[in-house]
Computed example of a mutant assay.
Amino acid sequence: MSALICGSIAFDTLMSFEGRFADEILPDHVHRLNVSFLVPNLDRQFGGCAGNIAYSLNLLGGEGYAMGTVGKDFHPYQDWLDQHGISRKYVKEIEDTYCAQAYITSDADGNQFTAFHPGAMNHAHEQHVPTDDSIDLGVIAPDGKDGMVQHAKQFADAGIDFIFDPGQGLPMFDGDELKTAIDQAAYVSVNEYEAQVIGEKTGLSVAEIAARVKAFIITSGADGATIHVGGRTINVPAATPASVNDPTGCGDAFRAGLIVGLQEGYDWEITGRMATLMGTIKVEHDGTQNHALTRDEFRARFEREFERKVA
């Protein structure tokens, strides 16, 4: 059985400014801002939520496909996916567009300027959820809004359980649209801040959202996660990182652990820990697809961290 992960496939261009933005921007001239920053350090990473989740899912031996739209500059990413044995069956190239791109400049204080170009991601709605390939679980991750809405409906119409994970796409949805997506979904997975935003937009409490789905999962970074399921609350601890290098993409790695736990039929105590461990492993590495391990290594670390066994 396979998971279909609908979401962005993007390049992340990361740049470091060794000074402080605050020292370069004059407060009384922000209405005529024209500044330039020397960025001696630049790194280009493979990213996007669908790509990131598929990458971590593949590490765990999970079955699944990334589904997304890409542009004419996709070829290096294509080679990367091929190198790691990640299927491109549902990756569609849109002519005369570029892949989605995030350009992020950070200063010495950790402040960031980010420019995001959606590019081919705006064509996500041109893809359709397949009813073959034994798809038994879906993921709606941040993508073009029309694509997210359409794919959620297609999963629901096909009777395929899916995880609604709006993430950075959350601001695009109003309260009624979020209620519709929640009612269509089997699972909702968000971080603490996103859970608060959903509550404010929909007027629904955590308990009311949990009552509409099979499980409502809220991540809390270093504090682990909380799973609201069947009228009870399960507090899932995080694993202890060997180092904290880069939190970018931790939520996507978490989702991969969640998918594998669901596919393999583990209870929520185990599934939640599989998810938090994958998030911890990711935070130990820079970038979103630079962590690597075998399932045997994952199993051994799981048992060390939680004193429980997993296959």
Rank of each mutant, 00 (worst) to 15 (best):
R20I: 04
F21V: 02
F37E: 02
F37N: 02
Y55N: 04
L59S: 05
G62R: 00
D79M: 10
L81F: 13
L81P: 07
D82G: 14
S87K: 07
Y90K: 05
K92V: 12
A120N: 05
A120D: 02
A124R: 09
H125V: 12
E126Q: 15
H128L: 10
T131H: 14
G147D: 09
K153T: 13
Q154P: 06
A156L: 04
D157L: 13
F162I: 03
Q168S: 12
Q168M: 10
M172L: 14
K179I: 13
Y187D: 04
Y187W: 14
Y193D: 09
E194H: 03
E194M: 01
T202P: 01
G203Y: 12
G203I: 05
A207W: 08
I209R: 01
A215N: 02
A215M: 07
I218R: 00
T219G: 13
T219I: 03
A222Y: 06
D223W: 04
G224H: 02
I227D: 00
T233E: 15
A242T: 10
N245D: 09
N245T: 13
G249Q: 09
C250D: 12
G251A: 07
D252T: 09
A256Q: 04
L258A: 10
E264H: 12
E264M: 09
Y266G: 03
I270L: 12
R273K: 15
A275K: 02
K282I: 00
Q289S: 05
N290S: 13
T294F: 04
T294N: 02
